[in-house]
Design a protein around this nucleic acid. Structure first.
Lengths: 321, 321
DNA sequence: CTGAAAGCGCTTACAG
DNA sequence: CTGAAAGCGCTTACAG
């Protein structure tokens, strides 16, 4: 049914060794005529090498696993991985996605089972994941390893950036709004910490901490728990900000005069709230590009054609603060 | 570094054949004592069988590939695949995700390369995908194959459900709002068709068709292009509905009196718009559950403990129509 | 320039 | 109750 290298060899009248060499780019030393017969036969038979056979022979597969954190999987993440899939494909690598779970056991199964060439993630690996990957001898790449900087939590910077914006706008009493479900809020701690630091820096009182789900009742209760007017709310993401904005509007608070909000993510929907949301954008595409570049480099591929892109967080000042 | 079955065999003082049998559940006929030595040795060595070796020997891997369509990847999809990952893991199957691309070439690489036990998708496979999978001899499962019904496009039903709701509410002039980017709108055609049918049924004029991105200017232009007051807008999804609702509010139209909207997806954010969005919910979790059940059944696993769940589209009447 | 041979880690009849 | 042997599809020195 499915052609093997044996079939190709027979059809081309050569040995399997020859087929393997030629199809894997080590064919320079073969007669042009032979090369052509082989590639011809391969395409006629729609030959696709077996990943299993190849993996076994080489000790590692051509698979790269991207670990997807348990967090909002936005539409643009999809875009990003699609691009990554294509970029890796041109180097003969196959990208497959794996959903992160609480325990690292499934990751272990995947890693030792599939022997991927590398494991990548757009968000920093946890200590446990890093240890696992290391002990299994698998190359791991995350944003931290991609940016040659020291390992620091970028979430602290994000929280600080949001808070500083509010302070600059004159809000003197800050609030940090977490997303209720802790699993969905892997970055909340760092963000909150960033807000705290800014408060300290500016001699402001400690931020008030609230938590809510994306739900009207939650949002109303949260708004009612804040001392208004006068507060500036740093939100975990644009969804949280939208829910709170809506609740504040229902309660009749003037935005941004009596209460301010700043979101995070720069989602498409953040542009169509009333008023449109002030938020922070993060160039995921650039981050992904750099991650892939780092991974390719680490895998010994040439990356001369890939200039590193500048990744930064960009304030998007709009109507809510 | 990484233990092989050879290592386990040596440590347990048995042959590799024995290790294989015992670790794969065919150990009934072995001495209890032997079984224990083997499992003991395996766990001490943190043995994980090599997927490559096993795949080569068995002719098929323990991998199940889920094809993710190029469309909004909502947070709940994440939830669903996480659950599916776990359900499959208990049967020794590993779920990996593959992003659909325009061409089926990458899918082909994955399928013939990895020899997955099955390929599943929460949205119907395209003709091309189906053909490929069939020719490669891979089991394929999608919602259509899971629900024993004839292959019909559920999107037509969804569009019709939305339209009928608006008609029941008294809107006599319907509009269908597509999401601009065609790649993001794989279901638009079917939905539009559903709306058309309802108009015909009720002797109403043909629906007006508009297209917009999730963008304030697009939305304003779209609203301005509709004959108001009096129209009911069937929206591709909740995001489109939110953008239009916002534009209508800016223009001063009364919702739902002068213009009505119904979205689709029942996203968390749809509950916090002003007024909250009328929408249609789809029990993805149930659909996924049935899909997995069908896949397990097709793979010869026992599914006696898995009662099929009822999947339907549920209207969520709220404030916009 | 090309092929024979060994080996990657596993599973599966089969023999005992 | 257990093991020797063959084979899955490939790649990689090595020999010629």
């Amino acid at each position: 049914m499915i052609a093997t290298s044996e079939d190709v060899a027979r059809r081309a009248g050569v040995s399997r060794a020859t087929v393997s060499q030629i199809l894997n780019g080590r064919g320079q030393r073969f007669a042009v005529e032979t090369r052509e017969r082989v590639t011809q036969a391969a395409s006629e038979l729609e030959y696709q090498p077996s990943a299993a056979g190849r993996t076994l022979a080489k000790g590692s597969s051509d698979i790269v696993i991207a670990v997807i954190p348990y967090t909002t999987f936005g539409g643009n993440l999809q875009d990003i991985f699609q691009t990554a899939t294509e970029e890796l494909a041109t180097r003969g690598l196959t990208l497959l996605l794996h959903l992160a779970t609480d325990s690292t056991a499934p990751l272990d199964r995947v890693v030792t089972g599939m022997k991927p060439r590398a494991v990548i993630s757009l968000t920093p690996f946890s200590r446990a994941e890093l240890d696992l990957l290391k002990s299994r001898g698998v190359l791991a790449f995350d944003p931290q390893s991609a940016s040659s900087k020291v390992r620091t939590d970028p979430n602290v910077d994000i929280g600080a950036l949001q808070a500083r914006y509010l302070v600059d706008r004159g809000y003197e009493s800050l609030v940090f709004a977490h997303l209720q479900d802790a699993r969905l809020d892997p970055f909340g701690e760092g963000r909150e910490e960033g807000v705290r630091r800014v408060c300290t820096e500016h001699g402001l009182p400690e931020p008030m901490i609230i938590r809510l789900g994306i739900d009207p009742d939650d949002a109303l209760a949260a708004i009612d728990s804040i001392k208004l007017p006068g507060a500036g709310v740093v939100c975990y993401n644009d969804d949280v900000a939208t829910a709170l904005l809506s609740a504040a509007t229902i309660r009749g608070w003037k935005v941004p005069d009596e209460v301010g909000f700043i979101g995070m993510d720069h989602t498409p929907l953040s542009a169509v709230t009333l008023p449109p949301l002030s938020t922070v954008g993060y160039d995921q595409r650039a981050a992904a590009y750099n991650l892939i570049t780092a991974a390719l480099h680490g895998l010994g591929e040439s990356v001369d054609d890939r200039e590193p892109m500048d990744v930064k967080f960009a304030l998007v000042p709009r109507g809510t603060a």
